[in-house]
């Protein structure tokens, strides 16, 4: 601002190229503003085109989009989002329940427990988890994890079968909601751990020292000075992880058995999700089928948008709070 005026009335030596300079200045400002606007336009376009291409299929739907538990847009033109949305929410919620405690532990390990010299490389090791492509996790999941989880699944079913999630008869284990949730948990762990680690590292050193000087053990110090400070950050990290899990496609597409029912029995082979259904169904879909998949993608877009905006809201509030506290 002050610097702008300084450049505008620059010295006489530079007045010769003044018009070229203002051209350049104008162009540069235009380009950068335009780039930002393009970004906003893309977000708007995603919503607009998903809606406009979903409408014909939704019109042709002879069932109830929000009520039916079938997905047959190609043949009987009946399709409903219910089972898929349920699968998306349940699998992501399970993944979150598995991943969050471990991720917080990992974050604390890096920020407050690991020897200082090892902290950075070990943190990088966790980041590498995020670098493994989704399809590789899918391949690993079907060939290695699914068989591995069969015995523990049967054990859980046998001994804790009274708990609704572990209930079920017939085939136990295999390509289940549980197996998919474990893979999702592994995939969202690095992002939750990375954000939590950052907020834990930002916990004011002077408060940590205050706690130690009162005679707190390391854990008591963390409970007094680190966790309360980091809580909003961990919450938003978990929400971002949740959004990631909901949109995760290929790994679960390989694992989920593509059923269309609502079942809380996570150890039986009943599982699907919006994203997995899109990946598995796209190749064989006709026009209405593709429109139906776009409609389901729109639902996924809206859900993840809400979750992400919620997470950002929490983060932004925390920033203000941190500024006051500092």
């Amino acid at each position: 601002m002050a610097t702008n005026t300084k450049t505008r009335d620059g010295g006489p030596a530079m007045s010769r190229s003044a018009s070229r300079r203002t051209h350049g200045e104008g162009l540069f400002r235009f380009l950068s503003t335009a780039a930002g606007v393009v970004l906003l336009a893309i977000m708007a376009a995603i919503a607009v085109f998903l809606i406009s291409e979903a409408i014909p299929a939704l019109r042709a739907n002879e069932g109830n989009f929000f009520g039916d538990l079938v997905w047959e847009p190609n043949s009987s033109k009946v399709f409903g989002i219910g089972a898929l949305a349920f699968g998306t929410v349940l699998s992501s919620a399970l993944a979150l329940v598995i991943a969050t405690p471990i991720a917080v532990g990992v974050a604390l390990f890096i920020s407050h427990y690991a020897p200082r010299r090892l902290a950075a490389p070990l943190g990088y090791l966790i980041d590498l988890l995020a670098a493994v492509p989704s399809v590789v996790y899918g391949l690993w999941g079907v060939t290695f994890l699914v068989p591995l989880l069969r015995t523990p699944s049967q054990w859980l079913n046998e001994h804790l079968g009274w708990f609704p999630l572990f209930a079920g008869e017939g085939i136990i284990g295999g390509k289940t909601m549980f197996a998919g949730a474990v893979v999702l948990a592994i995939m969202i762990l690095p992002i939750i751990a990375a954000i939590s680690r950052e907020v834990f590292l930002q916990a004011p050193k002077m408060n940590e020292e205050a706690a130690l000087a009162l005679g707190a053990t390391r854990w008591e110090m963390i409970r007094m000075a680190v966790l309360p400070f980091g809580r909003p950050g961990v919450i938003s990290a978990a929400m971002l992880g949740l959004g990631r899990a909901m949109g995760e496609t290929i790994a679960v597409a390989l694992i989920f058995p593509a059923t269309f029912d609502i079942s809380f029995q996570i150890l039986t082979p009943h599982a699907n999700s919006i994203a997995a259904n899109i990946a598995n169904g796209f190749g064989e879909a006709n026009d209405i089928g593709r429109g139906a998949l776009i409609a389901s993608g729109l639902v996924l877009f809206v859900i993840t948008l809400l979750v992400n905006m919620g997470a950002r809201f929490v983060i932004n509030r925390r920033k203000e709070y941190a500024r006051v506290g500092a």
Partner: peptide
């Protein structure tokens, strides 16, 4: 918010 757009949705958008 864009960071959180699922990759499958980005694909569907370009398709649409």
């Amino acid at each position: 918010v864009m960071t959180g757009v699922p990759s499958v949705v980005a694909g569907l958008f370009i398709f649409a």
